[in-house]
Write a protein that binds this DNA or RNA. Sequence first.
DNA 1: GCAAGGTC
Length: 946
Amino acid sequence: MSGGGRSIRVLNVAEKPSVAKSVATILSGNQGLRIREGRSRYNKIFEFNYSINGQPSLMLLTSVTGHLMEVEFEDRFRKWHSCDPADLFHAPVRKFVPQDKTDIKRTLEEEARKCQWLVLWLDCDREGENIAFEVIQVCTAVNRHLTIKRARFSALIDREIHAAAQNLVQPNKGFADAVDARQEIDLRIGASFTRFQTMLLRDAFVIDAATDDRNLVLSYGPCQFPTLGFIVERYWEVQSYVPEEFWTINCSYKSDEGFASFSWMRGHLFDYTCAVVVYEMCVQEPNATVTKVKKQEKLKYPPYPLNTVELEKRASRYFRMSSEHTMKVAEDLYQAGFISYPRTETDSFSERTNLHAIVLEQQGHPVWGPYAQRLLDPGSGLWRNPGNGGHDDKAHPPIHPTKFSAGEAGWSQDHLRLYELVVRHFLACVSQPAVGAETTVEIDIAGELFAASGREIIAKNYLDVYRFESWGGSLIPTYVVGQQFVPTTLTLDSGVTRPPPLLSEADLLTCMDKEGIGTDATMHDHIKKLLDRFYATKDANTRFSPTNLGEALVMGYDDMGYKLWKPYLRAVMERDMKAVSEGAKRKAEVLETCLQQMKACFLDARLNKVKLFEAMAIFFERSNRSIGDEQHTSGEVVRPCGLCLESDMVLRKNRDGNFMVGCLGFPQCRNVVWLPGSVSEAVVTTNVCNSCNPGPVRKIQFTFRRLEIPLDYNSIHLGCIGGCDETLRELIEICGTGSRTSARGRATPVVSGSVQRSNMRQGACIYCHQTGHSSSGCPSQFSGPQSARSRGMNGQNNNTQSVCIYCHQLGHSSINCPSQSSATQSGELSIPCNSCGAPCPLRTANTANNRGRKFYSCQLKECNFFVWEDSLNSGTGGRSIRANNTISSSNSSRNSGGGGTRRVARAAPNAASVTFVSATGDPVSGRRCFVCGDPAHFANVCPNRG
DNA sequence: GCAAGGTC
């Protein structure tokens, strides 16, 4: 059937086959819907008649499968040794349809030729908009007269889809541009750093990863490295953790009515003497008086509707499934029609979703069917409209069951589990919260307050079906205000603080989600990549540790002062992408700025590669294979170095095959002359230049690649690198140098002596933007950034700094950027440290919860004294910072854990746990001072208290 | 042999 009459042919393209099918079914009302094959076996073509704003149309609806195109370097830059990795920041890239997508491209071309309109039904996000423009490019290449329209829809439901078809808009170039920029930046950064660090380190060390070293790729990526950074950072936190002993008073009371355990409302004290003094007061007057009884109803709410990250986190927590495996299983269930689309950010249901129908389907299940029935019974009062998690990707609903199953023949245990999780989660979402009655009792013993609480679950509600969650609690006896009793036990107990645990897979996903690393569809890929690259390992409890290789790489960059392993770079990129999508910045502008900074960062990292070597050397043996590092191979002497005046400069060839003349004093002296990239051979001769100083400067016989130099230059040339050689200088201008400068010669050749002065095309210093000196010799750069890692090495030899990657300003290193600081220092106000006596400057917090709040913190790195200014004023005093300490509940020996020397020095013997038993023991006789052990006095008057 | 993003 053809359009006929005034009917037009409209080519509609969706992002994936499933959406094409849904849209076709909805628009056609399932009437007269025809399906035919396209060139690709996955992407069918649906045909039906439809009227767009009264315009009769023959609709052809097909799909792509995600991106139709890829970005790659032009062929001559694709081989690893084809160019200096630094050139990849400017090497030409192209966007093309890869081989495995050509069948889809052909379908689009064939259909587009016969159509008048092209309507884009891609997902309504930035990537979708970019794919839309890929489709436009392919279709308009064969039919320039196409009218282009964009359908905007937020859910695959009738009203939305019809409304989208009747209100077609124009595609948004800003969104697509943002993705183009992101793709190009990711490619350039990833490829350059990956090639650089792989070629630098792989052959230089014996890396005992479970693969052939030669095949090992030490990849760098703007998502994988911050993910590794999260793991390493927590690992370092655990490694450097110093356990600290604390003291607490516990009290219990057992009567005919039952048992209650009271805990000290001060929590715990790190000062043994203080704890003992208070404890003695309690022991002397052990009578407890009930001061407060509070009863209240507490609700425990069901989770929000399920999105991808939550699905991955919960499957990891409940079943210990890896996020990657979870997504594979979820994809299977989705393909077979049992669950909805598994890659979604959305955690709230549209009002128009028929939630009852989804529950209805589950009524027949032998295990949770009865619960589904209760939900649908209005008399049960169990139903509740689901909560709104606040995220909506406007493309997909939360993950929910779409077809009933009591288990299928081909399902593995994990398919069963995941389907069960999706169903139970959905049923929980539409259920009432659990209801509990909580009782809190406070007692006073000698002026010290203690509290006990109990909980009784009144209605389990959603917990009946969501077996993965529980709500613990026990009952306590009834107390009344004013009631008095003598505790059954009153103990002074010690414990030690413990480090936070290593990151679990769920923790890692939380970090990534919070910092915007990856997308819901790719986060599991980044985690898997770390395992595949031998950067990290996962233990049986799904906890991640870095491998030596992962730790060494992060340590190396950290020692350089670069936070390439932190999420900030991605965050800055994301902000720029947003600016492009909103039209606030142009794509070209963002690309240029970002790549320029990253290139400066790359060059600087390369200058500081000794840091990477040092970090690797901590963990790995040096290899006797060729080390592949141009600074470590010796060469023939060309001249004495005019910069350090100590060492000779020698001719060398780096791994990329490019020639340079570098100072043997590296890394102390970084003087180097890069030679034209077109040199194929260079030999030092005995011929000495008559004019260049300091001499003697021996001339070099160059052979240039004929095709890479202009015709009027000889391919053989006896040249001088001292600065007098016009020909050499011209060829550097024309061809660029082989390394550290782009082919267009825009970056900074690092030259010395008269070459430096005579080379008018020399780029500006990357630090101060002046000409006349090399970047590595910039006078503004001699106070280097310090290591950010608390257990890190010192910052020797770190005398470089570049444009700050965060605020784009000069004058400070990235790690000292005020925009990134967790706190800013104000004025000269300071107080002496309570702990060590050093000054504690007044600072202003910049964290989410305490922004603007003032605090003092000790300036000594080793000392962690910290106090809020307002708590000082209110007299509550200071304490040491301890992040995420968890408290051991068991008693322990005073000397365990190795922490808290200050307290150990004052410790009394055998004081690990002091017990007063009111029913049997004599509370006074046999007692002695807990500080010095003297029975003649109590600790509060002990002369040895210090 | 390199990234991250779609999706099959």
